[in-house]
């Protein structure tokens, strides 16, 4: 009997669903054991009946063993959808960094909802003003843009933007074998990076990721100097390893560009910004010169209170 799966996207970009499709050959082995009973990205299954005949208060989510959701939660509609999914599945998987940590959209948490709405939806110079926040056809925002586990219980988290197909297979296989938990090993991107490290840099200002790195394209990565030590901000030291799947070199490093931190913190409770600032000073770089550190060092993890509007300092 194949295991029933409900898959849905919330505040997502569809990259995570593409990653499921990207599983490739192993997907053929998995598919006979899985029955996707609902998948907004691929299956034409409506929430309120094919003709909208169901009452609008009752979202129709089929019963299933496994629920997979990508994307965080931005508005009441997504929240309702997520709560319904949680009610109808036994094991809930948060897929991708948006679902696990809030992801890129959670940058909005650096401002108050009204400020974001005014700036982006009302007064953006390059677009026409969008409907009013009070418009009944626009689902109201919830107070912050959250990760999935800030709204409902999550059993398994597969981070990454997008997550690597290898881990989706591994997590699904674990669930098929009756497990209800799975997680990536706690290692940093640096732990899996082959570049040359000397624990020091030339000092000075931290360069932005657009600046050219020094390397010989004819030579392998094991002949390139660590990106941080070249003075360019690389979030490898504070980012969970795994973006290259079960083997291989971290993806951005492969492309000879710095890690942006898409797999999120190495362990629960870590503060990547604090660790990264410490790490920059220990190779001798000037922490003052990091541009926009709060946003850049919390790039994918704005949920869970990591990004908030700055509290006003008491005036003195």
């Amino acid at each position: 009997m194949p295991v029933k799966v409900v898959e849905d996207w919330l505040n997502a970009c569809s990259g995570c669903e593409i990653s499921i499709l990207n599983i490739g050959d192993p997907l053929l082995d998995l598919l006979p054991n899985l029955e996707f009973v609902h998948m907004t990205a691929l299956v034409d299954h409506k929430f309120y009946g094919q003709l909208g005949e169901k009452p609008v208060t009752e979202m129709e989510i089929p019963e299933a063993t496994v629920g997979i959701v990508s994307g965080g939660v931005r508005n009441e509609e997504q929240k309702h959808e997520l709560e319904q999914i949680r009610k109808h599945v036994k094991v809930l998987i948060a897929l991708g960094s948006c679902a696990t940590y809030g992801g890129i959209p959670a940058h909005a948490n650096m401002w108050k909802n009204d400020e974001v709405f005014e700036k982006i939806n009302r007064h953006c110079s390059s677009t026409t003003p969008a409907p009013d926040q009070q418009d009944l056809n626009v689902p109201p925002w919830i107070p912050t843009c959250t990760a999935v586990d800030e709204v409902v219980n999550v059993d398994i988290r597969i981070p990454g933007c997008p997550p690597h197909p290898d881990w989706i297979v591994e997590a699904l296989t674990a669930v098929l074998n009756g497990q209800t938990s799975w997680s990536l090993p706690e290692r940093s991107v640096c732990d899996t990076c082959p570049v040359i490290r000397e624990q020091k840099s030339g000092g000075g200002a931290v360069k932005r990721c657009f600046e050219n790195l020094e390397f010989n394209p004819e030579e392998g990565l094991d002949k390139m100097r660590c990106i941080n030590e070249q003075g360019v901000l690389c979030l490898g030291p504070v980012t969970l390893a795994g973006c290259a799947g079960k083997s291989g070199v971290p993806r951005c490093i492969q492309a000879r560009t710095p890690c942006r931190g898409c797999f999120g913190p190495i362990r629960k409770g870590a503060r990547p910004m604090v660790d990264m600032m410490g790490s920059l000073t220990s190779v001798g770089l000037d922490p003052k010169t990091v541009v926009d550190r709060r946003a850049i060092m919390n790039r994918y993890i704005g949920g869970h209170g990591f990004l908030t509007p700055l509290p006003a300092r008491p005036a003195r």
């Binding site: 910004m273 604090v274 600032m277 410490g278 920059l280 000073t281 220990s282 001798g284 000037d286 922490p287 003052k288 550190r293 709060r294 700055l310 509290p311 300092r313």
Partner: peptide, 17 residues
């Protein structure tokens, strides 16, 4: 080392309000 970390800490105090 502590001295250079202190600079980073001073900057981050603002981020934590």
């Amino acid at each position: 080392r502590m001295k250079s970390r202190a600079e980073a800490i001073e900057l981050m105090l603002e981020d934590f309000g």
